[in-house]
């Protein structure tokens, strides 16, 4: 995850309390989603950014996961996300995200 984004996530977690923050991802692949999810839960796996060694344990979802999809107005989702749903390997993303959440999320 971009170092500046890591900093912003860290700042938001401090400002609002980690239990009140949900990180919503839009990455195009399972692996990239998993890396970003790991960064905001267990810490930066690349040891490069401000979240290195910082386990925020934030709640994190990908926008294509069913839990998130059902929160949306169906028309907005159709307009903004449905094309990408057709393109992405959604099952792979869901598996990656679930695995990271089960291991590292502290506020589920």
């Amino acid at each position: 995850m971009d170092l500046e984004n890591q900093k912003r996530v860290k700042d938001f977690a401090e400002q609002y309390g980690p239990e009140n923050v949900v990180v919503l991802l839009g990455a195009a692949e399972g692996e990239a989603s998993g890396l970003a999810a790991e960064t905001v839960t267990a810490g930066d796996p690349t040891y490069a950014g401000p979240l290195t060694g910082v386990s925020l344990g934030l709640t994190v979802y990908h926008v294509c996961e069913p839990e998130v999809k059902e929160e949306f107005d169906a028309a907005v989702y159709d307009e903004q996300v449905s094309m990408m749903e057709m393109v992405l390997d959604v099952d792979d993303i869901i598996n990656e995200m679930k695995s990271i959440r089960e291991q590292f999320c502290k506020y589920l």
Partner: peptide
């Protein structure tokens, strides 16, 4: 981990054509 970028673009263009 950034995937095949041209291929991702073609999939998006195709998906839009389907839509």
């Amino acid at each position: 981990g950034a995937g095949d970028v041209p291929l991702a673009n073609y999939k998006m263009i195709a998906a839009l054509a389907v839509k």
